[in-house]
Nucleic acid binder design. Structure first.
Lengths: 247, 247
DNA sequence: CCATGATTCAAACGTTTGTTTGAATTGCGT
DNA sequence: ACGCAATTCAAACAAACGTTTGAATCATGG
């Protein structure tokens, strides 16, 4: 399989300098950044290793040396970014719940715990939060196999954590209904910031000016909060809705 | 470039038998169905022509013969499905507005005009509506160029039509705010039914049983209606939100 | 009933894909 | 300064990609 003569990467883990510092320009990091940027821009399957390495100023073989394969590269891109983001989200939720001293949080607070870490992502060694969301929306609709294994592991813990908080915030909403509404919510999130392009395509309207990521979040929270605590849908009685299916 | 010896397709339009009937098993149709199914399942860039033709029981060259190129194939897939769907949507909205006799529609009615044609899509020569939405969500996050030209043309008319109706239904919501909320709404739609897989990935919960597309729509309408007429977000005053950004 | 045009087919086209190789190059430890 | 391991590099690999070709097949209209 691998490990021919010199010690390669891929199988084990990061080979890294000797142990500590990375004094050189760290090709690994540049590859991750370039891959993230390109995956976001063109999708996973449509981005070639040659584009990535060229964008990173590295040799073509660098990806397979540092990561082992293209699939392992994208896996690491998501692991790093999502791990950090979700850690911040859970920490933010913990903080809010501690401050609430046992009282259920407001829906808006829970939403802010989800959204705020996205805006603070500028601190991170890499790009801004909106880009990450765009990457995520892309990832969800491209379960080619590379992500099928990594996304659940990154999200399962976070989702059940926020689901618990939301259940306490909305005790009147049945569990199954709440599950769907949170599904709708995540959809809105990943699409809202991800699909800025798609919106530009669809809409005839220009909302170019003055709407940065923070402004979008400020608009998202009331929208989602209202949806989450909407009155329950009518129970399925018998006939269809009035005057709809006609013709 | 093209048109070497025998009359090919591609450039002009459908070559079709002589003029009328399609007595044979119509490879064209089988190719469109297979392409739609596979694009939905694996994405556009990740689906090869060999997979499509094999799935359709046709020869590899059939795609280039009937459509001219892979890009033209996907274009036709979307044109046919989206054209029919959006026509039904606008017709449904027209019907409702005619019945309302000049009075503004309820938000829920407008949403049903958007969603109901999705459920009736079973009548269409092809598959069910949920599959189409899944295909759409995929398309929006894959603007590789093939769809960049076709999606706006299919959607622009419909969006401004529904935007007008929604503006009349929600006169208290400012225009820019409403634009964003409709953006959020479309995101929820395409993700809600599209990402059944993604949800299965994310959630630890099983909502397998008893939730067909109609049930999802019944849950979606109250969620979206509440979000669309949510109270307006707080105007940007001065300081940040209380107790959020704290390290 | 043959001739014609539409359709199918097997095979190959030239690119581009991800990956591998083995030799240069680099940078640190002793 | 030497040597060793980590890294970079140019070049090639086989495989898969979309596309093209020219002959075989089919169905029909004159």
């Amino acid at each position: 399989m691998a490990a021919s003569k010199t010690g390669r990467a891929g199988n084990g883990r990061a080979p890294r300098r000797h142990a500590g510092s990375g004094r050189t320009a760290d090709t690994r990091e540049r590859l991750l950044a370039a891959a993230e940027s390109l995956f976001m821009e063109k999708g996973y399957a449509a981005t070639s290793l040659r584009e990535i390495t060229a964008h990173a100023g590295a040799n073509l073989a660098a990806v397979n040396y540092h990561f082992g394969s293209k699939e392992a590269l994208i896996r690491e891109v998501f692991e790093r970014r999502l791990g950090s983001l979700n850690a911040h989200r859970v920490a933010c939720l913990d903080r809010l719940e501690a401050a609430a001293q046992g009282k259920p949080l407001a829906v808006e607070q829970i939403l802010e715990a989800i959204l705020a870490p996205l805006l603070e992502a500028g601190q991170e060694p890499l790009a801004r939060g909106a880009d990450l969301l765009r990457l995520l929306g892309r990832a969800f609709s491209e379960p080619t196999g590379a992500l099928s294994g990594i996304l659940p592991a990154q999200y399962r813990q976070v989702v059940i954590r926020f689901k618990q908080a939301m259940t306490r915030a909305l005790p009147e909403v049945p569990d199954r209904e709440l599950t769907w509404r949170m599904h709708f919510m995540f959809g809105t999130l990943s699409y809202a910031m991800a699909g800025n392009d798609a919106l530009h395509l669809i809409a005839t309207c220009n909302l170019d000016g003055g709407d940065d990521a923070a402004a979008i979040v400020r608009r998202l929270i009331p929208f989602l909060a209202a949806g989450l605590r909407a009155p329950l849908p009518a129970v399925r009685t018998s006939g269809a809705q009035p005057g709809l299916k006609a013709a």
